[in-house]
């Protein structure tokens, strides 16, 4: 099956993590259209760029990933947001899912894990709609 190339907004307060996730998405054939390093910036860039997919860090200075997810999904219920979380953040992941995130991957983000989660989300929410 030909992979669907997606436009992606990468949200993470660590520049290294931004680079890392962007490189992985690139390898998977997707296009990173924007970077944001906190929740408020993520909301603004989402509205501006309208990406197909967002990877969202949870703990960030200022507006965190959960609040950002909530704000984006409120306006755009079909937004595809994948949370990037650490071990021990299950409660926060739960809150993000309840706020409308579609999935999550655990840090350190590895290519296969990211690929599987993106594929699942694409199969479920992109191809069928």
């Amino acid at each position: 099956m030909i992979p669907t190339p997606l436009s992606v907004l990468v949200v993470d307060d660590s520049i290294i993590a931004q680079k890392k996730i962007s490189a992985l998405l690139d390898e998977l054939g997707h296009t990173v259209v924007g970077l944001a390093s906190n929740g408020a910036e993520a909301v603004t860039k989402y509205i501006h760029l309208m990406p197909d997919l967002v990877t969202m860090d949870i703990t960030m200075p200022g507006t965190d990933g959960i609040v950002a997810t909530q704000r984006i999904v409120e306006k755009y219920p079909s937004a595809l947001i994948i949370m990037v979380s650490s071990h021990g953040q299950e409660g926060m992941v739960m809150a993000a899912l309840e706020a409308g995130a579609k999935g999550y991957v655990l840090k350190p983000v590895e290519k296969d894990k990211l690929k599987d989660m993106v594929q699942k989300v694409v199969d479920r929410y992109v191809l069928r709609s």
Partner: peptide, 21 residues
């Protein structure tokens, strides 16, 4: 609760994501 609600809407993937927590 999240998984059952998702499954009721036929969203197996979302149900799976919730249960994986």
């Amino acid at each position: 609760a999240g998984a059952c609600a998702a499954a009721a809407q036929g969203d197996v993937i979302r149900a799976e994501v919730f249960l994986s927590l």
